[in-house]
Design a protein around this nucleic acid. Structure first.
Lengths: 248, 248
DNA sequence: GCGACGCTTCGTCGGCCGCCGAACCGTCGC
DNA sequence: GCGACGGTTCGGCGGCCGACGAAGCGTCGC
């Protein structure tokens, strides 16, 4: 009944190419202006303005007006997770890239990217595995930063005091790797610091990032995590995951 | 670009009251016929037939034709998770039930229900917590059934051999409790056996289930898990969870 | 065989929705 | 002040999409 209507309304927010483009762009966790988003989606600013109203009204986006600018960002990490999940569900058919440039772009994206406000991809998963293997993070009862972990992060210059009431550390399933990586306040702090310290930098305007030599060095030095850039070359093909447990 | 189109197409499958009704009904994990679904959504069978084509074509549903019947079910656990996630995202405004009957229904649903093919709700979370506390399930490195756990489940009559290649045991965030419960092949096996052995039974035609006295007894006897039916009375109000980490 | 039944296909209608351009409003810079 | 600029509002257009009924097809039961 009206529960169905609510579900339909919620889904309808993403069921449009223009609005979907907005949300995918905003998945990088940054705030965009209305005009930037209009250009990104190649629509008139008037169109963008109306569609953004709907997304804000539906609770997917939050806005922040400042002067003559209207800044928009995703409402929160859960929103980003929903969008990633639906997008991943549509990726059943792991289509192969058609051109060399596309293959190159896909390889970059698979290797390292931002997932809303934290790190994902092969490198993101490796980081999570490394910190758990090191004992800097304990996964015995949920994910918890250990004493040594807190020390190591502090020494690396990463703030470990949660500034909000969001979960400090939580898993986020990576929908290309199908493995968990680090989200939550700490995950975001690590990502923020990695940008600030030049450990990673964006490739072009998308969500793909590159791990810099300094990043490889400092990640090993401070966190004891080894990221092998050569791994990037091997992150080409999709793992052949069946499209859900089919039943006869 | 076309990634946005794919996302929009995927979301569009759910962005319709009729199709949403179908999917919500199918969340119970059972197979429904096309006619049943048409009646559920109060549309002509011709309409249902067409919409079901789209859902099957989009990969959300699988069909199974037998005689003059067309059985439909959700394509898999991931699909159910996506649907639950979007529905939960729309539930931001935790509206209070208006009538006594609605409050009663909500209480039942919050206490125990099926989440596609496994158990959720307060009871589902309690089951997960209990098995982990008991040491029957180990959560040190993902969720793994321990030796004693395998023995206990066998003695209870629950098959522990995975029959498919789906993850044996995995967490599934419960979107009313915001706590993990047991999904995966084992989670489904437990649920299946709980129905078969009369531990739980459906209330009406929805997803709500009741834990029978026999269920309470056997869950404690075989699995060492205590489910307190009185807890049902306290599962009325929604926990006041903020609608995502808003940013200033 | 025959009707009853479950489902599908087709044609059609109505409404919603996304898009644009034009006009307008507020902000910024000189 | 003025123009430039970002954004919003409004009216209108076009297309898509979901709804239905009627006709048709295959299956089941007698």
């Amino acid at each position: 009944m009206e529960e169905a209507q609510a579900l339909a309304d919620q889904a309808a927010l993403l069921a449009d190419r223009t609005r979907a483009t907005f949300c995918l762009a905003l998945l990088d966790g940054r705030a965009w202006t209305a005009g930037e988003l209009a250009r990104e989606a190649k629509v008139a600013v008037s169109t963008a303005s109306e569609q953004l109203d709907r997304l804000v009204g539906g609770g997917l986006l939050t806005e922040h007006r400042q002067g003559r600018h209207r800044y928009l960002r995703l409402a929160g990490p859960e929103t980003a997770a929903v969008i990633e999940m639906i997008a991943a569900a549509g990726k059943r058919t792991d289509e192969r890239p058609r051109t060399m440039a596309a293959a190159h772009r896909q390889r970059n994206l698979r290797f390292a990217r931002t997932c809303y406000d934290h790190l994902a991809g092969v490198a993101g998963v490796a980081l999570a595995d490394g910190l758990i293997g090191n004992g800097l993070i304990d996964n015995h009862n949920g994910l918890v930063l250990t004493g040594p972990g807190r020390t190591a992060l502090s020494e690396a210059g990463i703030e470990t005091a949660p500034d909000t009431q969001r979960p400090v550390l939580r898993e986020c399933i990576d929908w290309t790797e199908r493995r968990p990586h680090l989200a939550g306040a700490i995950g975001a702090a690590i990502c923020r610091h990695a940008f600030g310290a030049g450990w990673i930098e964006r490739i072009g305007s998308g969500r793909a990032v590159r791990v810099t030599p300094a990043g490889v060095r400092d990640l090993e030095r401070y966190l004891g995590v080894v990221i092998d850039p050569a791994e990037r070359e091997r992150s080409a093909a999709a793992p052949a995951v069946p499209a859900g447990a089919r039943r006869p």
